[in-house]
Write a protein that binds this DNA or RNA. Structure first.
Lengths: 333, 333
DNA sequence: TTGAAAGCGTTACCAA
DNA sequence: TTGGTAACGCTTTCAA
């Protein structure tokens, strides 16, 4: 016993005080119907008296269930992810699950070890926008229940956003405003969402015979966006679509610094609708995802898997919605 | 065994394959010096062969150490907290600790149960800006190592920001600009930081003989700030200081909506320097805290406690720095 | 240097 | 309905 730390109350202490066996304490607490009311009473009283709370760790050893879920994500500094984590956490609490969090700092190489490290302590994983190669992630198939968010990769169930539709809406909006040439500032090459959005954008522009200019890949951060801004201006594009809001914000910032009018000279569209998108000047037109739903839906998808039901390969696609704000306007003449 | 889930590799499997006892496997892996090189070789080979990773849960049962730390915070949607969590997480990973995260959604009543639920699975806690009453938190003293962030409460070690100095800088700045009447939009009453900042502000304004107007308490969110904006305008104040940046952003937003010039008619100062503070228009003058340090320092304070050393009541106070941006200017004449 | 055995706190099983 | 016993996977004595 470590000095200064109170010894934890165990089931035996309760059993002793209640004058019953440990088995009965266990039953009385887990399934009150299986013991005599009188016993239940005694046990409950003793437990309360001693402030007994069963040790989940010990329990998990025998039951094989930890009541923990692991959440792995690339970067908590990207405001998109805290929203997701929060919704996961909320749903998990409702179900009496605790949440392990692992931020991989956008380093694909850290993901597999991170998952490995948590594997024994969780009943399942929610992988948010994982960056690791398909085959690396697939090595966990069959080992632990896994639901992937913002990426599709067999054989895992997934929750994704309907990027194609979001891009269609954004392009329709810009087309209606007279834009014919759009630049895309891409996010990490390792991001499935990035490829998905790019694909959707390509389809949408092609469908309307518009020009799509590739402005290269940058980090999904404000600095990344700022770095891309000058490249974008050097093209023929009158509008720019960013992989996410942070990049879009960086574009806005740099445009502002250079005295480039938004949307006068160029229109800007983001993706995600993070909180701050509405607060900047001009407020950012962006494609909103039901961020709060992602976590909830993910947990609910994971639940049956953790219970042992092979609900295989559910693919939930959440709707997207273009939010039109001040950063988009008519194309310059 | 649950269908479809691969049976985990245990120490016995390794022992069998290596042709040694479980004890030897344990020793070979934990302290290679205590076994013959040949044995070590055989064990390591077998472990690699089978992909064996010791079960931390089982280990913790006997060692009493989980290598997990629990992080409890009020609201991940407040951009301040993800920064803190990220720095905790980074430091924890360096030390091979995993992080449990619990978001209490600003509900003080949820904190104690949240801590209780995690208690058996962690070696210690980092409580970020806990909202629960002192006595509730103190009930954990002696049970588990706890370090409190953004609040001071005996007998726990704490990491706080030097709010008084931050406020002094902000007030000096406003005073120099000619402001003589300042409004304060307070955050949650249950927030120690709020009281600390308010106290610092009171001292700073008193020291300069300035008027301090109380604009009431609001939720530490953009909406909270927006709600307070009109109240602030109804006072004599020419500058307003908000409990945090989110509130300040809400003020800016509402002022903008009402056509109130910032800083022409009124200057606005925030606290925390969250990412977006620099991105809004006008960019927000704010008091920066070394957010990334908070987590690191917190973990480092927790470490000796978890090792059993009673490092008692260290109190680390991190410096603050006023960041002057566009939202503050000369007082109107 | 090694193996056997005990034990961590709990739940599951089998008898009574 | 209850208690005893085994077992979960691991580490830690204690002997050999």
């Amino acid at each position: 016993m470590i000095k200064g730390l109170a010894m934890a109350v165990t089931i035996k202490d309760v059993a002793r005080l209640a004058g019953v066996s440990a088995s009965s304490v266990c039953r009385a607490l887990a399934d009150p119907a299986r013991v005599r009311p009188e016993t239940r009473e005694r046990v409950e009283h003793a437990a309360r008296e001693l402030g007994y709370h069963p040790n989940r760790v010990a329990r998990s050893l025998i039951t094989g269930r930890t009541l923990n879920i692991g959440v792995v994500l690339p970067d908590l500094a990207n405001p998109f992810f805290p929203s997701v984590v929060k919704s996961i956490q909320t749903r998990a609490r409702e179900l009496d699950y605790a949440v392990f969090l692992s931020d991989t700092d956008e380093d694909p190489a850290v993901e597999v070890p991170a998952i490995r490290a948590l594997a024994k302590q969780v009943d399942g994983f929610l992988l948010c926008s994982p960056r690791a190669p398909d085959e690396d992630l697939r090595s966990f198939a069959g080992e632990k229940p896994i639901v992937v968010l913002n990426r599709r990769i067999t054989p895992f169930p997934s929750v994704t956003a309907d990027s194609a539709d979001g891009m269609r809406q954004a392009v329709a909006h810009l087309h209606a405003l007279g834009h014919r040439s759009i630049a895309y500032v891409a996010g990490p090459r390792t991001s499935w969402s990035n490829r998905d959005r790019q694909r959707g954008l390509r389809a949408a522009t092609a469908a309307r015979g518009m020009t799509l200019v590739d402005a290269g890949n940058v980090a999904p951060t404000v600095d990344g966006g700022a770095a891309a801004a000058d490249l974008v201006l050097a093209t023929s594009a009158t509008a720019v679509l960013a992989y996410n809001d942070l990049i879009a914000l960086g574009l806005l910032q740099r445009f502002h610094a250079r005295g480039v009018a938004v949307p006068g000279r160029i229109s800007v569209v983001g993706f995600d609708d993070i909180l701050v998108a509405a607060l900047v000047g001009p407020p950012l037109t962006t494609v909103a995802i039901a961020k709060e739903q992602i976590g909830r839906v993910g947990v609910d998808l994971l639940l049956p898997l953790m219970a042992g039901h092979e609900d295989g390969t559910a693919r939930r696609v959440l709707p997207t919605q273009l939010i039109v704000r001040g950063s988009t306007g008519p194309a310059p003449v």
